[in-house]
């Protein structure tokens, strides 16, 4: 479904991606792990079209989006941002149904649809008319998730879905992501350094280090791998091939 080959991106003198090769099959959940500043966010933003790569190919459903652009694919994408990125000036229900606000559907129908999506992520209908600033971090994350799935996308991106949440809320969000992507049959790409998210969400895991994919395999193989970079990352050790001063 998504094939990335030889992807490079440099900002000034900083070569963030140095030739990333990855493949995700339809309906699979790929989790990309790696230390801070290793280019995980840049990778996901290149795939979704927010950043233009310097070189390489991104092929989505047979279409080379590095040549044709993403405009005709955006309606098939959903994205949950790290800090939720909800629109402050709009009530929750308009945030959830933002993509459909100009589709010709009545506002009443869209409000009902938003209430249904909010229910799916565990929020009551009373939340629909609140503004994002009135919600807790966990509730904002759920609203962001409801927005990401509102238009039943085929491909969903999750950028650090549990960042800033307590362990219990992290577990709730991880379970929701797993349930929803499974029931929708969506292809999911998640970037995180939260290992509980990796185990809860992933079918496949890829580790990025030094601008390339250091390791890629099934979730079952993650804990058995001998790769020193992966071992250091999942054990959180200060000693190993990954420098701690970055």
């Amino acid at each position: 479904m998504i094939t990335i080959s030889g992807l490079t991106k440099t900002f000034g003198n900083n070569a963030v991606l140095r030739g990333v090769d990855l493949h995700v099959d339809k309906g699979q959940s790929l989790v990309v792990i790696g230390g801070s500043g290793t280019g995980k966010s840049v990778l996901i933003k290149c795939i979704i079209g927010l950043i233009t790569p310097d070189a390489g190919q991104i092929i989505i459903d047979g279409q080379d989006v590095t040549r044709s652009g993403h405009d005709n694919l955006l309606h098939r994408f959903g994205m949950l941002f790290q800090a939720s990125a909800l629109f402050d000036s709009l009530p929750v229900w308009e945030n959830v149904c933002f993509r459909m606000l100009r589709s010709g559907q009545s506002r009443g129908d869209l409000r009902d649809l938003a209430a249904e999506k909010l229910r799916r992520v565990g929020l009551g209908p009373d939340v629909a008319d609140k503004f994002p600033a009135e919600l807790s971090g966990g509730m904002q994350k759920r609203v962001g998730l409801a927005r990401a799935i509102a238009a039943d996308p085929e491909i969903i991106f999750f950028d650090e879905p549990t960042a800033g949440l307590d362990p219990i809320m992290s577990g709730v969000i991880n379970d929701l992501i797993r349930e929803i992507t499974t029931e929708m049959g969506a292809t999911a790409i998640t970037i995180t350094h939260d290992m509980s998210s990796v185990h809860a969400i992933a079918d496949q895991v890829a580790m990025i280090h030094d601008g390339v994919v250091q390791w890629h395999g099934n979730i079952g193989a993650l804990d058995q791998t001998d790769d020193a970079h992966v071992r250091q990352f999942i054990t959180g050790s200060a000693t190993g091939p990954i420098p701690t001063l970055r």
Binding site: G49, D71, H75, F87, F98, R99
Partner: peptide, 17 residues
């Protein structure tokens, strides 16, 4: 600017806007 630093502008793009 606040929308930019909180990724709301990126969110607009992903929502086909």
């Amino acid at each position: 600017a606040t929308m930019k630093v909180t990724e709301q502008i990126d969110a607009l793009v992903t929502l086909s806007t």
